[in-house]
Nucleic acid binder design. Structure first.
Length: 198
DNA sequence: TCATTAAAGTTAT
DNA sequence: ATAACTTTAATGA
């Protein structure tokens, strides 16, 4: 968890519930709140001219949503959409800023969280620029697995649908599936009950 | 080679 | 039941 929930409430935060598929904010909105997920999953995405979705990142319990925009005078460059039903705490921007000004510990945690996001972007852009679909998928899976306790081969179950993996790598679903099949043949991963074990 | 289109099978709500 | 996701196959850039 980035910021203690009680602390957020004491600063005037409120809770909002979103159903799966609900929009939290859209591209072009002005950032007014700090959002932190209590429960559920949220994706940050964009749509290109053809309507193809690119997922920037998937965020889960305890993480904040689009926090980097609160430090700038910019509109949101992406949408935030609930993947599952979500409970989200929202704190007005000004209260969030003063909280960071007052509390060095919170400020440090925020830096840590921002660095995490930056790192993810760095790893992903580096590998996504490769046009090889297998390398893209490996980059994604390596990143996801890097947080797992068990680093043994085939011990990590990829918590994404193939469609989501396609959205995160910029590949189409079919290529994602075919590439994954090929990787299974090459023993890079295993498929158990349709789930990818890496 | 990968994206796109289409069609059919499978799972989740 | 219906929508969402997965898979296979054919075709095109």
């Amino acid at each position: 968890m980035v910021i203690e929930e009680n602390l957020l409430y004491s600063m005037g935060a409120s809770t909002k519930t979103y159903a799966a598929g609900d929009t939290i904010f859209v591209e072009g909105d002005w950032p007014m709140f700090y959002y932190q997920i209590i429960k559920g999953e949220v994706k940050l995405n964009n749509y290109n001219e053809d309507g193809k979705e690119t997922i920037q990142i998937i965020i889960e319990d305890g993480q904040s949503i689009g926090e980097s925009l609160l430090f700038m005078e910019k509109f949101y460059p992406m949408n935030a959409v609930a993947i599952t039903e979500c409970e989200v705490i929202k704190l007005p921007r000004k209260a969030f800023i003063s909280l960071l000004r007052e509390d060095a510990e919170i400020s440090y945690k925020m830096n840590k969280c921002l660095s995490q996001r930056l790192y993810f972007k760095l790893i992903m852009t580096q590998n996504l620029s490769s046009q090889n679909p297998m390398l893209k998928l490996i980059a994604l899976m390596d990143y996801l697995k890097s947080f797992a306790k068990d680093q043994q081969q085939y011990s990590f179950k990829i918590p994404l649908t193939r469609k989501q993996m396609a959205g995160l790598t910029g590949l189409c679903v079919e290529t994602t599936i075919r590439t994954i099949k090929g990787m299974e043949r090459a023993s890079i991963l295993k498929i158990e009950d349709r789930k990818i074990m890496y």
